[in-house]
């Protein structure tokens, strides 16, 4: 069983450019994933404007009864977010690693157009490996 349910990547204008689910829990169809991504993009934007803290960069963690949503927004405006088991640890590090994979395998692919949906095999493979490794180390303990 996986502690990570879904991974989303949204470009700076709020469009979903990548979605993938892991394990059998919380599978979303295309419409639901698009809907969640746009809702999250807007919520994130609103939260950073409503926040009483100056220099707030938006919601980083949303805790629900049945899952946690961790979000990481890069300085270039791309957002990576994952949903996972409640209380799953080390997700912020996972998001950083996902960002590194994105910069290596997506952006360096000359046939990938920036801001467009990600259809890159190497990225898929490496992302799956990353998640597998994470599950192995977390269940090993």
């Amino acid at each position: 069983m996986s502690t990570i349910y879904n991974i989303f990547v949204i470009n700076k204008s709020g469009g979903l450019i990548y979605y993938k689910d892991f394990g059998s829990i919380a599978k979303l169809d295309t419409n639901d994933s698009l809907r969640l991504a746009s809702v999250w993009h807007s919520l994130h934007a609103i939260s950073s404007q409503l926040s009483p803290v100056t220099g707030c960069t938006g919601i980083e963690l949303l805790e629900a009864d049945t899952f946690d949503l961790h979000c990481f927004q890069t300085a270039t405006g791309t957002k990576f977010f994952v949903t996972g088991e409640t209380g799953a640890a080390g997700v912020d590090l996972l998001l950083k690693s996902i960002y590194e994979l994105y910069s290596d395998y997506v952006l360096k692919n000359p046939f990938y157009e920036v801001e467009m949906p990600i259809r890159v095999e190497l990225w898929d493979l490496n992302l799956a490996t990353l998640i597998r490794q994470r599950e192995r180390t977390s269940t090993g303990k």
């Binding site: 890069t74 300085a75 270039t76 791309t78 950083k96 960002y99 590194e100 994105y102 910069s103 290596d104 952006l107 360096k108 920036v114």
Partner: peptide
């Protein structure tokens, strides 16, 4: 440059 910046941000851990 528009692509390289993300690698820089991802791997350099530099703050704003």
């Amino acid at each position: 440059g528009i692509r390289l910046i993300d690698e820089f941000l991802a791997k350099s851990n530099s703050a704003k």
